[in-house]
Nucleic acid binder design. Structure first.
Length: 283
DNA sequence: GCCCTACTTCTGTGCAGAGC
DNA sequence: GCTCTGCACAGAAGTAGGGC
């Protein structure tokens, strides 16, 4: 390359490094509450537009950087970066830039865990309806959102309505599970750990009819390696004929629960609860 | 490095159906 | 009739990525 072209490339590397440095410093400053405590509910919503503004403010204060940070530049830079957290785990930088919906999801999960606990202990007579959840989100987590959005996030988490939850103890156990994801190679690779645990397979549309009501769930399983087992289901290696029939014909989803040492016990507990709730084993 | 646009997500509002 | 819930629609806000 010519001398001019070479110098141009060096400048670009330099400006990228400067931008990355400023980006990390800004995120560390904005998310210091989370980084110092590890409490995910302390993560602030930080859209890329807002992040760019904060970066430009700190650049102005420093005076050393002439480069303005723009959102579209950040949207290209951020997906390629990761960060090592205090616990030693390496995470995509995106985890420090949650959107509002992520925060609603975490807080809602927290509230529904509390609901399960209180109902089991006898401190709460009925599950929270969406309006109560809306009020609790505002009061406990300072999150304001509309009832409709709470309903949508709740469904995304696989949690049925308060009316259904009040009828079946089974549904309270939905809370510790992961979100419901489409049963595809991409989603399994993205979300499922190579850890032992319990998983459910469900229909994305429609329900399976059981003696005591309908459910989207048609299979409950356990595995020492959740990722491997779910992949096997996709590769049509299953010998279970009913399972093969659903997997081959329907649009399916899954969710899972990591249970390192107790996954056999956990599966039996969930299986028995399913039978007592719906009057028959899954499918 | 920046502009622009398509796409996605969030929000507010209204309405209808189910259950009490 | 009232409450709760889900759905539809439109507009605003945010994000991703093409192109110069």
């Amino acid at each position: 390359p010519s001398k001019k072209s070479f110098l141009h490339q060096v400048r670009r590397v330099n400006s990228r490094n400067a931008l990355t440095h400023c980006l990390l410093k800004t995120i560390a400053r904005e998310q210091k509450d989370y980084l110092s405590t590890g409490d995910i509910l302390r993560l602030k919503p930080l859209p890329q537009v807002e992040l760019a503004k904060r970066m430009n403010q700190s650049m102005n204060n420093l005076g050393a950087y002439a480069l303005p940070a723009c959102p579209s530049w950040l949207s290209r830079l951020i997906p390629n970066l990761s960060i090592r957290l205090l616990g030693g785990s390496e995470q995509p930088l995106n985890v420090l830039l949650p959107n509002r919906r992520d925060r609603i999801k975490w807080a809602l999960r927290e509230l529904l865990n509390e609901e399960s606990r209180k109902i089991i202990e006898g401190g709460l007579q009925a599950p929270y309806d969406d309006c109560q959840l809306q009020e609790l989100l505002h009061r406990q987590f300072d999150i304001s959102t509309v009832r409709r959005n709470i309903s949508a996030v709740r469904r995304e988490l696989g949690i049925p309505s308060a009316y259904i939850r009040s009828q079946d103890f089974w549904h309270l156990l939905a809370v510790p599970f992961s979100n419901v994801y489409p049963l595809t190679i991409k989603e399994i690779t993205l979300h499922v750990p190579q850890a032992s645990g319990v998983y459910e397979l469900c229909l994305k549309e429609g329900q399976v009819t059981y003696p005591k009501g309908g459910s989207t769930i048609f299979y409950i399983g356990r595995s020492k390696n959740l990722e491997k087992r779910l992949m096997e289901h996709l590769q049509a290696r299953t010998k279970n004929k009913i399972l093969a029939q659903y997997l081959g014909r329907e649009t399916c989803g899954f969710r899972f629960l990591v249970a390192e040492d107790s996954y056999t016990h956990e599966e039996k507990r969930l299986y028995d609860l399913f039978i007592s709730t719906f009057g028959a084993p899954p499918a």
